[in-house]
Amino acid sequence: MFRAALRSSVRPIAGPSVPRVPAVAQVVKRAYHEKVINHYESPRNVGSLNKNDPNVGTGLVGAPACGDVMKLQIMVDDEGIIKDVKFKTFGCGSAIASSSFVTEHIKGLSLEQAGQVKNTEIAKELSLPPVKLHCSMLAEDAIRAAIRDYKTKRSKLTATGPIPEAQPEVAMA
C-alpha cells in the first residue's frame, strides 16, 4: 500500500521543494540572479576529498524542509589555511549555487576567517529570494561542521601521537 503511495504521481505539496530538472527553466523565468544560474549550471569544486585524510574536515548537513543534503569538505595545510574545498549537494538550485559559491569563497582563507562567513553574505552575493534563505544557511552550517570535524580530528590525533600518513580511502561510494 505504501509503496504505491510513495510512488504516487501526485507530488507532495508540502515543502518548497523545487524539481531539479525544470529548475533551470523556471529559474530564468522567475528571474533568479544570474550568479545563481551560473553556479547551478556549472558548479565549481564538485567532488570529494579523502575523508580519512587527517588534513581533511568533512561537514555533512541537511535541510529537512526540502530534503536537501550537503557535504562540504575542506583540506587544511599546516598554517591553518584552507587549500582545497570540495562539495556535493543534493537539493534545489539555490542550495547547489550556495554551496558552489561558498567553496570558491573560502578557498585560501584561514579556518578562523572561514568560520566567520555568514549566510547573509552568501544570500546577498547570490541575491537569493527570501524563501531560499535557508539554502545559504545550510551552506554556512556546512562550513562550520567541516571546521568542527577538522578540529576534532586534529585534537584526537595530537592526543594519540604523531600524525599518520593519509590512509587511502577504501569504501567511497
Binding site: L6, P12, A14, V61, A63, A65
Partner: peptide, 29 residues
C-alpha cells in the same frame, strides 16, 4: 493531495498541532 501521501499527511497533522518542519531548521551533528 495533502492527505493522499503519508508524508504530506504527516506534515499536515503536525502543522495542525502547530509543529512545522521549519525552513530554517537544519540537521547537523
Amino acid at each position: 493531495s495533502t492527505l493522499l501521501t503519508p508524508l504530506s499527511r504527516a506534515q499536515y497533522i503536525l502543522s495542525q498541532k502547530g509543529i512545522d518542519l521549519m525552513e530554517t531548521d537544519s540537521l547537523g551533528q
